Amino acid sequence: GTEIELESKNGQREHYTATSEDEARKIIEKAVRRGIKRIELRGASEQLIRDMQEIAKQIGLQYRTDGSL
């Protein structure tokens, strides 16, 4: 699965493990709508990382991946 670590603007951290790319995408989209400061992805697919970079650029988000592409 993909591990997703979120940090909201007030510094609250949340951790999710998505079993599918679809689920990961839903978690990320929800977080973005809620207003999130930072997202870290571990074990994400190349496609998901590309999507994440696109989203991050659009809304000026900090993100990090573990680089295991």
Rank of each mutant, 00 (worst) to 15 (best):
D66A: 04
D51C: 09
Q53S: 08
K9I: 13
I4S: 01
S68M: 07
L41R: 00
L69C: 14
T2H: 04
A56M: 05
L69K: 04
R13V: 11
T19K: 11
G35W: 04
I36A: 07
T19W: 12
A56G: 05
E5Y: 14
L48M: 05
Y16E: 01
G67T: 07
Y16H: 05
E23H: 06
G1D: 09
E5P: 00
G60Y: 08
Y63W: 15
E14T: 10
A56D: 01
K26I: 13
G35R: 04
I49A: 06
E3I: 10
T2W: 10
K37R: 14
L6M: 09
I55V: 06
I4P: 00
E54F: 10
E40P: 00
R33W: 06
I4F: 02
R34C: 13
R25L: 10
I39W: 02
Q47A: 11
E40L: 15
L69M: 10
I55G: 00
L48W: 03
R25I: 08
E23I: 05
G1V: 14
R34K: 10
T19Y: 13
T65A: 13
Q12T: 12
I28V: 07
L48H: 01
I59E: 14
E29S: 09
N10M: 08
K30D: 13
S45N: 04
R38C: 10
G67P: 07
E3K: 10
G43M: 05
D66I: 05
T2C: 12
R25E: 00
R25W: 10
A18R: 03
R64W: 15
G67D: 09
A18I: 10
H15R: 12
I59L: 15
D22M: 08
Y16S: 01
T19N: 11
I36E: 01
D51I: 14
Y63E: 08
T2A: 06
K26E: 12
K37S: 08
I55D: 01
S20Y: 03
I4K: 01
S20W: 02
K30C: 13
E7I: 11
Q62M: 12
D66G: 05
S45K: 02
I36F: 11
L41N: 00
A24I: 07
H15I: 12
K30M: 15
Y16G: 00
R64K: 11
K26D: 11
A18Q: 03
E46C: 15
L6H: 01
K57C: 09
G67Q: 05
E14S: 09
E23S: 04
L48G: 00
I55E: 01
I4L: 04
D51A: 12
E54Y: 08
E29D: 08
E5N: 10
E5H: 12
R50V: 06
G1S: 12
G11R: 02
I27M: 04
K57D: 09
Y63K: 06
S8M: 14
A24F: 06
E40N: 13
A18H: 07
I36Y: 12
Q12M: 09
S20K: 04
K30H: 12
I4T: 01
R34S: 07
A44Q: 02
Y16N: 01
I28F: 15
Q53W: 13
Q12K: 11
K9Q: 12
L48K: 00
E46M: 12
Q47H: 05
S8D: 13
R13N: 04
A18G: 05
I36N: 01
S68L: 09
R38V: 06
A44T: 02
L61R: 04
E29A: 14
G43F: 12
E5K: 10
E14M: 12
T19H: 14
K57H: 11
R64Q: 15
Q53E: 13
E21A: 07
D51M: 14
I39F: 05
T2G: 05
K37G: 04
E3C: 12
G43H: 09
K57L: 13
A56I: 08
I4D: 01
R42W: 13
Q62V: 14
Y63M: 15
K9R: 11
E46W: 09
I36Q: 01
E7P: 01
K26C: 11
S45H: 02
A18E: 03
R25S: 02
I28Q: 14
Y63R: 06
G43P: 08
S68E: 10
L48T: 04
D22A: 12
Q53P: 03
D66M: 03
A44I: 02
G1R: 13
S68V: 10
I28W: 02
K57I: 09
M52E: 00
T17F: 11
G11Q: 02
R33T: 08
I27F: 11
Q58T: 11
D22Q: 08
R34V: 10
R50W: 08
Q62G: 04
Y16L: 05
E40T: 15
A44Y: 03
K37T: 09
D66Y: 03
Q58Y: 06
T65M: 05
D51N: 06
K37L: 13
E5V: 14
E40M: 15
E54S: 08
G35C: 10
I36V: 11
E5M: 14
I39M: 07
K57T: 10
G67Y: 02
A31N: 03
G11A: 04
G35D: 05
I36H: 01
I36G: 01
T17Q: 05
G60M: 06
A44R: 02
Q47Y: 05
I49E: 05
S8Y: 15
L48I: 04
I49C: 09
I28S: 00
R13H: 10
T65Q: 11
R25M: 07
I55W: 14
T17N: 06
S45D: 03
D22G: 07
G1L: 14
E21L: 11
T17V: 12
I59F: 15
E7T: 13
Q53T: 08
G60C: 15
R38W: 15
L69V: 10
G67M: 05
E23G: 03
A18C: 13
Q53D: 14
T19F: 12
T2S: 03
R64H: 15
E46P: 10
R13A: 04
I36T: 03
I49W: 08
H15E: 04
I49T: 05
K9E: 13
K30R: 12
M52Y: 03
Q47T: 09
S20D: 09
E23C: 07
G60I: 07
I55F: 14
H15F: 13
G60H: 06
S8Q: 09
G1Y: 13
K57P: 03
A24G: 02
E21N: 06
L6W: 11
R42E: 03
L6E: 01
E54D: 09
I36W: 03
E40G: 10
K37F: 13
E46H: 10
E23W: 04
A44W: 03
D66R: 03
I39T: 00
R34N: 13
R25G: 01
I4Q: 01
T17H: 13
G43Q: 05
A31G: 04
G35V: 02
E29K: 06
R13E: 03
Q47L: 08
Q47D: 08
R38S: 08
R25A: 03
I4Y: 01
S20P: 02
Q62A: 07
S45V: 02
N10A: 10
A31V: 07
K9A: 10
S68F: 06
E3S: 09
E7H: 10
A44N: 02
G67L: 05
T19A: 11
D22S: 09
L41V: 13
E14F: 14
E21S: 06
T2Y: 12
T2N: 01
G35F: 05
I27P: 00
G35I: 02
G60A: 06
